[in-house]
Amino acid sequence: MKIAFTINGRAQSVEIEDGNTPLLWVIRDQLNLKGTKFGCGKAACGACTILVDGEAVRCCSYAAKLAEGKQITTIEGLGTRAQPHPVQQAWIEEVVPQCGYCQPGFIMATAALLEKNPAPTDEDIDNNIVNVCRCGTYYRMRKAIHRAAALQAQQVAVNPKNQ
């Protein structure tokens, strides 16, 4: 079957045999966007978190057919090195990653959080950021999330249209 959606701002259509194929594999192996990670395949670790119509989705458990007509953002489309997303900028400033494998999922989940809640409290972070990091970067991640919120607020103050 053919599925058409927008990914990272670009219209895309893919041909797949089984519409129930997890979107993760379409993104990684058909579209060759390798930033979205396979961690567990059970929607338990969050390494495959992407945005679907602005909502955080764990795409290892999201049938490709459901993507029809949707706006999808992966880590590759969140920001660029020249123009990083505030979450990515904060991640760099706090030097968060260690092994780095879980980080795209955390960054996407945080981007989704800041969309809904531009100034999350520690409790909001604890509730919403439930991905798994084995290197134990949680301590720096929390600092980076608060910093990202501040960076985003600055951007909005400078250019309200960005919001």
Partner: peptide, 8 residues
């Protein structure tokens, strides 16, 4: 929760 919810 607002960002991580059932539909995640």
């Amino acid at each position: 929760f607002e960002a991580t919810n059932c539909n995640t």
